[in-house]
Write a protein that binds this DNA or RNA. Structure first.
Lengths: 199, 199
DNA sequence: ACCTGAACACCGTTCAAGT
DNA sequence: ACCTGAACACCGTTCAAGT
């Protein structure tokens, strides 16, 4: 079966299988990926440029699922929230995949669209021109850090070894997904509040 | 020379060499590391528990250089700034090393000290108890994202393909280290301003 | 205690060969 | 056009052997 009647592989199929593999907790490796696809390793190389190509394929599968709907919103603040929210969900839904996208730069057009929308919103907010790009970068960085936070273990700190003050706070603190979600919301609130104070 | 008169390796020596290797732009690999140390690969395994052990060794070399001096400061805001600044510098000075520390959790006691100091400062600021931990996590996440931002290429976006609005802003925007530094400062400002608004 | 050399399983990549 | 099998360089790890 050197040439099947219908192609059994494609960039998308490979990208999706890689996402599944990685999200199931394993490393991104070509051999297990091929096995999962029931295909010989070298077959992958016809559709995708090596391991790095697999990473780009993952990105190209994920991005269209989350980015692109230029949400209907009233007011700059709501626009920023919606914009950030959609990128954030992509990160938070696939934190393990994120780790690999870290090195590979996100697709130009997508970043461009995000930056453009954000620049519009911040201009409308009345932020001075020379602060706009930096502010976008701040939000971007926070989003990124918040996404990677998902990767950290359920309990980051051991209450046993904490001081009494910290231990008390930790007892009433959520963990896992809820902790992460709350952190993201609060961060965005703080940033928006800070931006408002500058306009 | 199976047993030299004076040991030529140690955890620290290995950790430092690994930092140099990684910071020079290459991947963290055991074989080049051994070569750089003028030693056989298997020798590393006596001092360090494999590749992961090398990562921990890097961390144990870096952390004491940056963390630990509990800075003299007046006022909660200044305390937070100093605290965050020192962690941040470790990240920003060694962004490539950071990539590897991402997976490995930072040493318990260090995180604990950071969280404790931050909790004190935020309590002094008058922030409600149920917001303190979340706020610390926000700052932590931002710090992290800002550090990883250092890894992104000099010019993230191509002004050619940007809209006129964005292109104009980009012309007046710094790049490289300065861009990164400014972004970090602005982000911390925004967050602190947001925190102030909540007290 | 501290380092070496050989050996092994495994991974990423290439390429000629098949249909 | 699309997949396979073999071959290769290289990496991480182990372990017996040396002093």
């Amino acid at each position: 079966m050197a040439r099947p009647s219908a192609a059994i592989l494609s960039r998308e199929i490979i990208g999706q299988a890689a996402i599944d593999l990685v999200e199931s907790g394993r490393d991104l490796q070509v051999v297990p990926l091929a096995k999962r696809l029931g295909v010989s390793v070298s077959s992958l190389y016809y559709h995708v440029d090596g391991r790095d190509g697999v990473i780009r394929a993952m990105r190209d599968v994920l991005v269209p699922q989350y980015i692109g709907v230029p949400a209907e919103a009233d007011g700059w603040e709501e626009r920023i929230r919606l914009e950030v929210e959609s990128s954030w969900r992509m990160y938070a839904d696939h934190p393990r995949v994120m780790q690999y996208l870290l090195t590979s730069v996100i697709n130009e057009p997508d970043v461009m669209r995000f930056y453009d929308a954000m620049a519009d919103a911040l201009t409308e907010a009345g932020l001075p021109d020379d602060e706009i790009l930096t502010t976008i970068e701040v939000i971007d960085a926070f989003m990124f850090g918040a996404a990677l936070d998902t990767l950290s273990p359920e309990r980051i700190l051991d209450p046993e070894s904490a001081g009494p003050r910290l231990a008390g706070l930790m007892a009433a603190h959520p963990s896992g997904t809820e902790r992460n979600r709350r952190m993201f919301d609060r961060g965005l609130d703080l940033l928006l509040s800070g931006i408002r104070a500058r306009t």
